[in-house]
Amino acid sequence: MQELLVGLEEAVDGGRHREWAVQCAHALGLGGIAVSLRWGAELVWFSDGVSARLEDAQFTLGQGPGVAAEFTDVPHQVPDLARDAAEEWPQFAAEARDLGVWAVFVWPVRSGAVRLGSLTGYRRTPGPLTPQQSADGLRVADALAGRLLAWRPGNESSTDGQGEAGTVDLHWAEVHQATGVLSCRLGVPLGEAMVRLRAQAFAEGRAVTETAREILRELPS
Rank of each mutant, 00 (worst) to 15 (best):
R152Q: 15
V114C: 08
A141N: 09
V114W: 00
V168K: 07
L186Y: 13
T130V: 01
Q132M: 04
A135S: 10
A173W: 13
P90D: 03
Q177W: 14
R139Y: 03
T179L: 05
P131V: 02
L138W: 02
L81E: 05
G191I: 07
A135G: 00
F92H: 10
E174M: 08
R124L: 02
G117C: 11
P79M: 01
E87W: 08
T130P: 04
R110C: 10
T130A: 09
A145C: 09
G163P: 10
E204Y: 00
A141C: 09
Q132C: 01
Q177G: 01
S118R: 03
G154R: 12
V106S: 06
R196G: 12
A135H: 14
A93D: 02
G146M: 06
E95R: 05
T159E: 15
E88G: 01
G137K: 04
V114K: 12
A203F: 02
E204N: 02
T167S: 15
R147W: 14
R196D: 13
E174C: 10
A85H: 05
F105Y: 14
D169L: 03
T125I: 08
L182V: 10
D84L: 13
R123Q: 15
A143D: 03
P131C: 07
R115Q: 12
A165V: 03
R110W: 01
A141R: 07
V101T: 01
F105V: 10
Q132Y: 13
A86M: 07
R124G: 15
A199P: 00
P128I: 13
G117Q: 05
Y122R: 07
A145V: 04
R97F: 06
H171C: 09
P90C: 04
T159D: 13
Q162D: 13
P126K: 11
Q177V: 10
Q91K: 06
A86C: 07
V106Y: 01
E164P: 00
W89P: 04
L99G: 00
P153W: 01
Q133S: 13
L170M: 10
V181K: 11
A141E: 12
G117M: 07
P108M: 14
V106G: 05
S183P: 12
P126L: 06
S183H: 03
R185V: 05
A96P: 02
V78S: 11
P79Y: 02
S118K: 01
L99W: 09
L99R: 09
V114H: 06
E88S: 09
R124V: 08
E156C: 04
D142R: 01
L99P: 00
G137Q: 07
R206E: 13
L99Y: 08
R185N: 02
G187V: 07
P128C: 12
